[in-house]
Amino acid sequence: QEPLTASMLAAAPLKEQKQLLGERLYPLIQALHPTLAGKITGMLLEIDNSELLHMFESPESLHSKVEEAVAVLQAHQVKELTTK
């Protein structure tokens, strides 16, 4: 697969940009958190594209964001349970 670049994304509409980024991100996140991969990917796609592109180049950055997302997701799930 060719690496995603900012110019490739800029050529596509926003919806496609997020889809392209998601398709690339999902397998990377699935390797770290198989059960939460879909939700984590969805959370990360809300981040700015330039930051997402940086994450492909920096595994440390990706891992850090993923762990952050997991923490937020878990807190969100606890909150949902307690409000029910």
Partner: peptide, 26 residues
Amino acid sequence: SNGTNVNWPPEFCPGVPWKGLQNIDP
């Protein structure tokens, strides 16, 4: 930010159009 939302986060599934676009301000 205004409480819990059962539809958040918008889950991404490979091959399926992501539904989270409405949360993003272009």
